[in-house]
Every structure is written in C-alpha cells, then in structure tokens.
Computed example of a mutant assay.
Amino acid sequence: MTTACLFDDLAAPADIPIDPGAVLLPGFALADAPALLAAIDAVAAAAPFRHMVTPGGFPMSVGTTSCGLLGWITDRRGYRYSGADPDTNRPWPAMPPLLQRLAFDAAARAGFAGFTPDACLINRYAPGAKMALHQDKDERDFTQPIVSVSLGLPATFLWGGDARGDKARRIPLQHGDVFAWGGPARLRFHGIAPLKDGEHPATGACRINLTFRKAG
C-alpha cells in the first residue's frame, strides 16, 4: 500500500494479529500525528470536550467530543448516537478528510476494505481516567469494523472476550498505534486501564483516542 501519510512498508513495524478479526498496527498513525492533533484541536474548538453522564448518573472520567454525521452521546436516557451536539443543538463538526482517510487505510490494512465511518468519537484521558470493559453495540451494522487510534501518553488496552466476565488481556498502546477489529471480534469486550501519570511531547499530560465507527 502506497500512501503518503503512512510509513514506507519496508520501515513500518510489523502488524500484530491479536485474534481472528483483530489486529494491532504499531505506529500506523505516527507520521500523521501532528496533523491529526491539529485537526482534533479544530474539532474541539467547535464542540468542546465534556464529561458526559452515564445512564446511572455518574460523570465519565474521560472528556469526549465527536465529529462526523453522528456523534456518540450518553445521559440519563442511555447510550446512543445523535446528529447534533446536545450542548449546542448544532450538527457535530464535519469529520476532517485526514481522519476519514486514516480510518479507511487502517481498516483496509487490517482486512476490512471499503470502511467509510460516519462517526468519530474523540476521548481525552487525563491521568487516572479509564474506560470499563464494554461492547461497541450502539451501531446498526455490526459487519462494519471499529478503528481506534492512540495519541499521546501510553495506555493499556484491555482486550476481553465475548462475555463481560472473560479475562481481559493487557495490550500496550503507544503514540501513533492503531487497533482495528471486526468480523468475529466485532463485539468483543474492551476497555482502557487507568492512565498512568506522565507527559508526552505531543499532547502533554493526556492521551487522545479516536474511535471510528459506521453508526448509521
């Protein structure tokens, strides 16, 4: 695959199969990271990060925003997608072309050609923030994969099984890594362990995660 934004294939770290339908692409987004972070800043200027409330009434430890035709939201009414930012009732910012292309290329590299996401959830993790084991199941079409991009501080990805109680593997994620899953792995439980303290030259004391989905 020849794409200007990616590593030359000869120099790129090897892809790491995790399970059937799940693959870690180390450093896949590294060359694009500065432009990705600038695009995220532009999205957040229009739709700022906020700590949404779960259906149980608890604020999430991660700050969230979205771009694309649909954005993922949570409140006392439940988890769902919405075409409008609930804070402003305006459409979410358009998904920057760079983000769309990265998701398309990463999905193809992982074996899911033709992925065209309509939603990008952007999570900002401060030290101590975490994401409990969960399934991505608010989307309509489970034949479409999930593409997750890590930027900034390193994190430990929790890769579980088909049931919440299955033991989760701990997979280190570094700045620029991409994790993609679909097919038989599409509904696997996954999460993020509490983020450790640190400073990253690209993001400071935080981790940024982009999760691309075909939601509608």
Rank of each mutant, 00 (worst) to 15 (best):
L195G: 06
A39E: 14
F189R: 06
A205K: 13
T65Y: 13
P154I: 09
T54F: 09
A33D: 02
G114Q: 10
A11Y: 04
P117F: 02
F28H: 05
P117S: 00
P91R: 10
G27H: 09
T203H: 02
G204H: 05
T65M: 08
A202N: 01
P194A: 04
V53F: 08
W92S: 07
N89E: 14
A185M: 05
F49A: 07
A108D: 02
Q100T: 14
F28G: 00
N123P: 11
R76W: 02
R76T: 13
R76Q: 11
G57E: 01
N89T: 10
V43I: 15
G176N: 06
F7T: 08
H134D: 05
A215R: 12
S61W: 04
A106S: 03
V53E: 15
L25K: 00
P34C: 06
P13E: 04
D105H: 10
D138M: 07
A180R: 12
R188P: 04
P13N: 01
A103C: 13
S61H: 07
D9G: 00
G160Q: 01
P17V: 13
D9R: 13
I171E: 07
L70M: 13
H134R: 04
A11K: 07
A205W: 09
A163P: 03
C5T: 04
A29S: 08
A202Q: 09
G160C: 03
D32H: 01
S150T: 10
T203G: 03
P145Y: 04
G21F: 00
L102Q: 00
W72F: 15
M1D: 02
C206E: 14
N123E: 07
D105L: 11
Q135K: 13
V23S: 05
G191Y: 11
C206T: 02
M60P: 02
L158T: 06
R207A: 11
S148P: 06
D32S: 15
G71F: 10
G68M: 11
G83Q: 14
A14T: 06
W92R: 12
P55L: 07
S148E: 04
H200P: 11
R109V: 05
V23A: 00
R76V: 12
P145E: 01
Y79I: 12
D141C: 09
P127W: 14
L121A: 10
T203Q: 09
I192H: 09
A4E: 04
C67T: 04
S148W: 05
P172E: 04
A4H: 06
C120P: 02
F142C: 02
L151S: 01
L30I: 01
P91S: 10
A180M: 06
P26A: 02
H51E: 03
L36D: 08
P59T: 06
D162T: 12
V43F: 13
A193S: 15
W72Y: 15
L99I: 15
L6V: 03
A132T: 10
A46K: 14
M60N: 05
W72C: 08
S150N: 08
F58P: 01
I73Q: 14
D32L: 09
